[in-house]
Design a protein around this nucleic acid. Sequence first.
DNA 1: TAATTTGGTTTATAAAATAAACTTGTTTAT
DNA 2: ATAAACAAGTTTATTTTATAAACCAAATTA
Lengths: 92, 92
Amino acid sequence: MFKELDPLLHTQLRLAVMSLLISVEEADFVFLREKTGATAGNLSVQIEKLKEAGYISIEKTFAGKMPRTICRIAPKGIKAFDDYVKALKTYF
Amino acid sequence: MFKELDPLLHTQLRLAVMSLLISVEEADFVFLREKTGATAGNLSVQIEKLKEAGYISIEKTFAGKMPRTICRIAPKGIKAFDDYVKALKTYF
DNA sequence: TAATTTGGTTTATAAAATAAACTTGTTTAT
DNA sequence: ATAAACAAGTTTATTTTATAAACCAAATTA
C-alpha cells in the first residue's frame, strides 16, 4: 500500500537541508541557515542527526579566522533521499 | 525557496489516512487501520486531530450491533492535502 | 577597550508519536 | 448460563522530536 517514510528525512528542516545539499555539492552552516530560515540551534541539532545517520558529512574548517562548518551529502544520503521521494509518491 | 509543510499532514499516519480518504469518499476505522497498518490507539488519536482541524468528518454509527466509525474527507481537507503535495514538490 | 556581531553549541520546554492498558459490548464455546 | 475470546475503539503513560532560548568564544566595529 504505502511505502515507509524514512523518519530521519520526514521533517521539514532535515528534508530542506538534504534537498539543498543534493543539488549543491557542498554548503556551509550559514548558507543552510539562511536558505532554510531555521534557527542556528535547531540547525545544529538536525545536521548532527543527519551526520550520525551517515547521510551527510560535516567538515569543520576556518574561513580566515572565523569558523566554518561545511556539509556535504554522502552516498547513503543520496540513496535515502531518493528512496524517500519514491516512497512519498505512493501517498499521492 | 521551500514552501511550508502543514504540520498536521506531515506525519506518516495522518498523511496515509488523508491519502486514502481523498480517493475513496468514505472509509471506516477498520479499513483505515488495516490499510495503514497503524495501531488502533494511534489511529484513534490521529483521526481525532484531523477532525479537529476540520480536515475530515467522523460519523459514529452501528453496523448491526457493532459500533462503526466512518471517516470522510472535508473540503478543507481536500484543499490542505492539495497544498501539502504542492509544497512537498518544492523540496525535490 | 567596550559593545556588537558572527558562528555556532547546550540546555530546557513544548509538541508528537506510539504503545500499552483499559472500556464497552458481542460472539463463541462449554 | 457462564466464561473466554474477540471487536471496536478510547485513554493514559512513555518516549521521541522539534523548537526556542540561553549561552559561549572569538572576531569585528565604534
